[in-house]
């Protein structure tokens, strides 16, 4: 029983995943660079520890900005590329389609892209994401936990006291060096 290597979904998926992962990390890395260049005097910034976040919804409502600086981040290395993504779909969807009524995200900020049966890739449209953590809860509760929240430092205005941190029930906010402003989830 042999497998045609050109049809090997693993290698293709790994390829796609690696590509996406590098792109995702590059995005955050570049933003880190922007941040580091912004000010050297104030060397600490706020960030969310994904292991402590309890997905309470405050990140969407408590930020001083009209649209929260907190966004969903996707770790492609952890993702299962699931057909039934519990971060994307309502708990009881009518069908596993992209129809609005099946989507969990209140702003339709998650894109679902077919890769190969039965794999789908999920990506976040950051302009639409309000940081509500609904998808994070779905993915953490029933999946691999590849979706998580981070303060995006290209948006955050760096309040002395972060307004979300004050109300965070998980005590998930902490100060991190501006040179390494993200707390990423890379493995289980």
């Amino acid at each position: 029983m042999t497998e045609n290597p050109t049809n090997d979904p693993t290698s293709r998926r790994t390829f796609l995943r690696n590509g996406a992962r590098i792109a995702a990390m590059t995005g955050l890395g570049a933003l880190g660079g922007v941040l580091a260049g912004r000010s050297n005097a104030d060397a600490w910034v706020w960030q969310i520890d994904p292991q402590k976040c309890v997905r309470c919804g405050n990140c969407a409502t408590e930020c001083v900005l009209e649209q929260s600086a907190v966004k969903c981040v996707h770790s492609y290395a952890i993702c299962g590329y699931c057909n039934l993504c519990t971060g994307y779909f309502e708990p009881e969807p009518n069908a596993l389609t992209t129809a609005a009524e099946n989507q969990l995200c209140p702003t339709a900020a998650i894109r679902r892209t077919f890769i190969e049966d039965p794999y789908y890739e999920y990506s976040i449209d950051e302009d639409l994401c309000i940081g509500c953590a609904k998808c994070v809860e779905g993915c953490t509760r029933f999946g691999n936990g590849s979706l998580f929240l981070q303060i995006r430092h290209d948006r955050c205005v760096r309040c002395n006291e972060c307004a979300i941190a004050r109300t965070c029930p998980g005590d998930a906010f902490r100060r991190v060096p501006a040179s390494q402003p993200y707390l990423l989830k890379e493995t289980h």
């Binding site: 997905r55 309470c56 919804g57 405050n58 029930p169």
Partner: peptide, 23 residues
């Protein structure tokens, strides 16, 4: 006042709750 506000905000229901309690 701030502490009370913070604790009220901490305790209030989540408008974006992922609710599967009925299951």
């Amino acid at each position: 006042g701030a502490a009370a506000r913070a604790s009220a905000q901490r305790a209030r229901p989540n408008p974006f709750a992922y609710d599967v309690s009925h299951l």
